[in-house]
Design a protein around this nucleic acid. Structure first.
Lengths: 218, 218
DNA sequence: GGGTGGCCCATACCCACGTATGGTGGCCAG
DNA sequence: CTGGCCACCATACGTGGGTATGGGCCACCC
């Protein structure tokens, strides 16, 4: 699956809690089990850290000063952070739990958290985070190749993955068939697609839906 | 998207609660808003009903006599019921909520449920349920065609979607190239795939991963 | 025993695909 | 203004894909 190995990155766990006692003790527990842990007292610290992009698991307190952990979670999502997120709280309620889970949290823990429970949650979050990270780096690589295509190549790709023949593509784009062939050959090379099947899967990965399809006009 | 229209099915909402008062009042509220509702006092009633397959939304009490609503939810999942599931409970706790959401519940409501909250949850569950139902019927249709293939056609399909040329497929399966072409033509017809691109997407839909790929042996 | 269906193969033909070679024109930046 | 990139097109050739025609072998079932 083309997983990325950027010089043996140890999976990173971020602990975000404004309560120093809770945060530090959590960090200590995890470090004793050989996890790579970084703590933050607030959301600003987390978002300001260059380590954020390496996080594979983020433990997030529901109450972080003025902000809600749910807001932070949303923000992590919009920043494309591919980490498994675990929320925890002393006064957690059901609506918060539902909101967190809907936004893709791995789990929601009630303080005080038993050590075994914590470990299980972290492990699960790490697994998800690493998997998401791998998937995302694959997708980014394909996306980069896709972005390197010229506008015309994009047009052709779109119709190619719709299953149209070169002749039909030429008709749609008001081109000669030979020109379509050239664009097609170029985009296959640029996308590094060994075959049409691979190209279709790449397009699926990028969420590119084929336009109209199968209706030709000579 | 090939959505199925089996004679104007009105989306069905199932209410499962052993408390008659709660169940009946919920039914009444929903019916007054023109939802199509059926109530059940226990899980046995639900699973025994022929209406279950038509359900697009299931409201499930967390406590159903001896059984947990979570068990029922699991069972619904293993029975391939494509409905949006909403759990609700008077004494809901966070672990239950997490478990429900992990299993794909739309939301988890605490009793007593405000009417607007209920409606919002039902609408969301219905939307999910109907979408899942449509997706599932599409997938089932493709699956049926896939199952109609002969073993040899399965072999060939597998290598076709891996992007191999007929010549390479013939080598792998120790066949003549012409035989591969025949199988290929037959499976394209049986799968009702207008093009290779569509075949690849069908295979993706069925979760068929291409074997090895791109390594030939002359 | 004859029918059905799966599996296999050959020749032959046509079309689709890919690419090489060679050329035109537009646009923009150095 | 020249070099580079994009877009466009033509002829030509080789290969890949699809299908028709015709045939052989085997297993299973009525």
């Amino acid at each position: 699956m083309m997983t990325e190995r950027t010089g043996a990155i140890r999976p990173l766990v971020c602990v975000v809690d404004d309560d120093d006692d809770v945060r530090l003790s959590t960090e200590t527990v995890l470090r004793s089990l050989d996890y790579h842990v970084v703590g933050f007292a607030d959301a600003e610290g987390l978002f300001g850290s260059p380590l954020l992009d390496q996080a594979a698991c983020i433990l997030l307190d529901l109450r972080l000063g003025e902000r809600s952990g749910l807001d932070v979670q949303q923000q992590l999502g919009s920043r494309q952070i591919a980490a498994g997120i675990v929320l925890f709280s002393g006064h957690g309620d059901i609506p918060s739990t539902v909101a967190a889970m809907k936004s893709g949290a791995i789990t929601f823990l009630a303080k005080p958290v038993a050590e075994t429970t914590l470990i299980a949650a972290v492990d699960e979050a790490l697994a998800h985070g690493l998997q998401r990270r791998a998937a995302q780096s694959d997708r980014d690589a394909v996306r980069a190749r896709y972005d390197s295509l010229t506008p015309r190549e994009h047009d052709v790709l779109d119709l190619v993955i719709a299953g149209l023949m070169n002749k039909q593509i030429a008709g749609r784009l008001d081109l000669s068939e030979i020109t379509v062939k050239i664009h097609r050959g170029n985009l296959m090379r640029k996308m590094q697609a060994p075959s049409l099947a691979d190209l279709v899967r790449m397009a699926e990965l990028l969420g590119i839906k084929p336009t109209t399809s199968r209706y030709d006009r000579g």
